[in-house]
Simulated assay, not measured.
Amino acid sequence: MALDTDTEPNSLGLPKPPEETRVVVAMSGGVDSSVVAAMLAEEGYDVVGVTLQLYDHGAALAKKGACCAGIDIHDARRVAEERGFPHYVLDYENIFRDAVIEEFADSYLAGATPVPCIRCNERVKFKDLLETARDLEADCMATGHYIQRKMGPNGPELHRAADPARDQSYFLFSTTREQLEYLRFPLGHLPSKAETRKLAAQYGLPVADKPDSQDICFVPDGNYAGVIEKLRPGAAEPGEIVHADGRVLGTHEGVIHYTIGQRRGLGIGGLSEPLYVVKLDVESRRVIVGPKEMLATRIVPVREINWLGDAPFTSQAEWQLSVKVRSTRPPREAILRPLSETTAEVELLTPEEGVSPGQACVFYETDGSRVLGGGWIWRG
């Protein structure tokens, strides 16, 4: 679709009237993406809803709290029917398994703590689905993520959501500049989730009161180990629980049942000091435990970096910024030292506990809301 540059920009920043602007909306079946689709349809945009079937939804029909289960496909279809725009369900099961689930299993078995939602955004939603949106001749793709896209002097920038409690920037750090040109996030400026639900009620959406999804979509009830055992039979091999000083304290039923920083459920009661998992030695099948102070980390190696700053990443020896090493933690001041275009060392000015390989390290402006990119923590 050709753009008329003389026309005043519409609400999505495109220089054409809404009725001539096709928008593909990624619909998960939840309240957020449903509101985005309804809002844009109400404004007169040519909306096309797309829902991805990411895994066997027949097995998921009875499961609630997952973003792409069968019931969610049904809910997305209902919203599209009631609001009068086309809706398609795309079978991405094989792509999702290859790009997300297999790596999740391998990385968990290697003793890491993976974040599959980031890989799903990076490799499925913002890659294959985005290409599908282009094939449908859409001018842009909109999602229900809580993050803001703002125009800066050098093009579109990624910013944290207006509501810190809903901000999803940690899960979207790998969004590239090219993708950012095409993506839109209409909910990022809202002050709270209550506003989204109010809009859902206003549009009369059947999902207005639907609960938010809590789990990773393919991990029922947060039972990571159960999923890994199904994907990799025999993965839960027993081994020893060893104190950092070398004492053998007990046995375990598989390294996959433990994560860095874990304190509860270690099965080594009767000790005078509280102990935490400080390392997972996969090769020797050992779970290493120690006192809390052993969890404190100051230097964090990061790779696969996606840089969204204005100046080239390697143009400075050091960057003063803030970072998040877990989605649930606030940004902390740090020094970022590039080692190459895609690798770096992060020095935390205040040591953090429970920094784990497999998690993301996301970069932010110290005195602002801008997301400067991020990378993957890769060794303990």
Rank of each mutant, 00 (worst) to 15 (best):
S340Y: 05
Q320R: 14
E341F: 04
G309I: 09
Q320P: 00
V325A: 01
L321K: 01
S340W: 10
Q320C: 00
T328E: 13
I335H: 06
S340P: 07
E341Q: 13
A317R: 14
P312G: 10
S327R: 07
R332D: 05
R337V: 08
R326H: 14
P331R: 08
W319A: 01
I335Y: 04
A334I: 05
I335D: 06
A317S: 14
V323H: 02
W307Q: 07
S327N: 03
P338Y: 12
E318R: 11
S340M: 06
W307G: 09
R332P: 00
I305D: 06
E318G: 00
R326F: 04
R326W: 03
P331A: 12
A317Y: 04
W319I: 03
P330C: 00
A334N: 02
S327G: 12
S327W: 05
P338N: 11
A311Q: 15
W307P: 09
N306V: 15
S315T: 11
R332L: 09
R329A: 06
L336D: 02
R337E: 13
L336N: 03
R332G: 09
A317F: 05
A317P: 00
P331N: 02
S315K: 10
R326Y: 04
G309Q: 08
A317W: 05
E318K: 11
E341K: 13
R326S: 12
A311H: 14
V325C: 04
W319L: 03
W307H: 11
D310I: 15
L308F: 13
G309A: 06
E341D: 15
R326L: 02
E333D: 14
R329W: 15
G309R: 08
S340Q: 09
S340L: 06
W307F: 11
S315L: 06
E333C: 01
Q316S: 13
E333A: 10
L321R: 02
P330D: 11
E341R: 11
K324F: 00
L308W: 12
A317D: 15
W319F: 05
K324W: 01
R329L: 15
E341T: 13
E333M: 02
S340N: 04
Q316I: 00
L339T: 08
R329N: 11
S327P: 00
F313C: 07
L336T: 05
V325G: 01
L336E: 03
K324H: 00
T328Q: 12
F313Q: 08
Q320L: 09
F313R: 08
I335R: 11
P331L: 01
K324A: 06
A311E: 15
V323E: 03
E318T: 14
T314I: 09
N306S: 15
V323I: 10
E333Q: 09
T328A: 11
P312K: 12
E341P: 04
P312R: 12
A317Q: 14
I305H: 08
T314K: 08
I335C: 03
I305C: 10
E318D: 12
D310W: 06
V325Y: 05
S340G: 09
D310N: 15
V323D: 03
S322Y: 01
V325D: 01
Q320A: 13
L339R: 14
K324Q: 15
F313Y: 10
W319T: 02
L308R: 15
V325S: 00
L308I: 10
L321S: 02
